[in-house]
Measured scan of single mutants.
Amino acid sequence: MEVRTIKVFTTVDNINLHTQVVDMSMTYGQQFGPTYLDGADVTKIKPHNSHEGKTFYVLPNDDTLRVEAFEYYHTTDPSFLGRYMSALNHTKKWKYPQVNGLTSIKWADNNCYLATALLTLQQIELKFNPPALQDAYYRARAGEAANFCALILAYCNKTVGELGDVRETMSYLFQHANLDSCKRVLNVVCKTCGQQQTTLKGVEAVMYMGTLSYEQFKKGVQIPCTCGKQATKYLVQQESPFVMMSAPPAQYELKHGTFTCASEYTGNYQCGHYKHITSKETLYCIDGALLTKSSEYKGPITDVFYKENSYTTTIK
């Protein structure tokens, strides 16, 4: 009895394709271990004539594949690729409408935090270190965002349907971005203890939790000093293409032309909904596939993004 075979390709990165001759009487799992086709788990399936010449994702289970996976995804987590594939199996079914010149995501599976993050990423200057993220990001900007969303979920250790947080998501993504040249110098002034300067680099240099107003941050924000008295913390120097200011959701007025974009969060910790506000020729609110415009805006804002380049204080 002759062994019926077909020729397929296996890959971990969709760049390096490895030619395989597979036995049609055995499952993919018996031949390769966990195997995925377009995100779908085909591990328990036997090869079919229609699979001839198709590319299958496999887990990096030998040295060659491990090197290829690390170079593309910059992670050695053995569960990463499987999590990416199972997320992709959902995100490829989502709709990605162009809204006001940006790629958004039609609401499904509690994905409003991903839509808000995706919209924000198209408006701030950011370059990702893992080629996987950078490639998928370019495709997302062009309207094909399924891979990018699935990668975000995998890097953030999230599953489809789980509630997510924009600030946490951005923080994970910033860790995989090139923020080497970003720098922030802060000064804390206390009447009792004097003053202390701190220099922050990388992710810490672009994120701040405690106030939404970048102007206020430049002037000074009140913080408790270690001595128990009130101290003032203010920005001395900022070198970065953008800054992200966050605070627990509270009524906040966004003035046209003073910011790049913002995240609105309605609801409580267990259950809520994100919308995205962007400042173009007027203010726009993007909620999944829905767009509304207004000249002014007041609502429960939790993150505001500002364009920056270089700032030095005039406070002496």
Rank of each mutant, 00 (worst) to 15 (best):
G220T: 03
A132G: 07
F305T: 00
M24S: 13
N49F: 12
F128P: 05
D13F: 05
S294C: 14
D13M: 02
V22W: 05
P78A: 15
T192I: 15
G210I: 03
Q123A: 07
S50Q: 15
V243A: 00
V3W: 11
P249K: 02
I124N: 04
P248A: 10
L88R: 05
V203L: 10
V185L: 06
F242R: 01
T292G: 08
A262S: 02
A145S: 05
M207F: 06
V304W: 02
K93G: 10
T75M: 08
C227Y: 00
G257Q: 06
Y311H: 15
D287Y: 00
V160F: 01
F9S: 09
Q216H: 13
Q238A: 02
M26L: 09
L102N: 02
Y252H: 12
M207D: 03
R66N: 10
R83P: 03
I15F: 15
V236E: 07
S50A: 14
P249N: 05
Y234M: 11
L212M: 05
S294W: 10
R66F: 13
G210C: 00
L102E: 05
L200I: 10
S294D: 07
C193D: 01
L118I: 11
L186A: 07
H48T: 10
I277E: 05
L88C: 04
Y137F: 14
A136V: 03
D303I: 03
E68P: 04
E308I: 14
E204L: 08
H256W: 15
S294P: 11
A115N: 08
S213F: 01
K229L: 11
D165L: 04
E162T: 05
Q196Y: 15
S246N: 01
V12S: 07
A115C: 12
G220S: 05
G220W: 02
G202H: 02
F259S: 01
C149P: 02
K298H: 08
L126Q: 01
L235I: 10
V304K: 00
Y57P: 04
T55N: 10
Y138C: 15
A150S: 04
L17A: 07
K316T: 06
Y311L: 10
E52S: 12
P131A: 06
Q31R: 13
K233Q: 14
S79F: 09
A140N: 02
Y137P: 02
F32R: 07
T75E: 08
C285P: 01
L102R: 01
N16I: 10
L59M: 13
Q122W: 02
S213I: 02
K233N: 06
I286V: 10
E253F: 10
Y155E: 02
T10W: 09
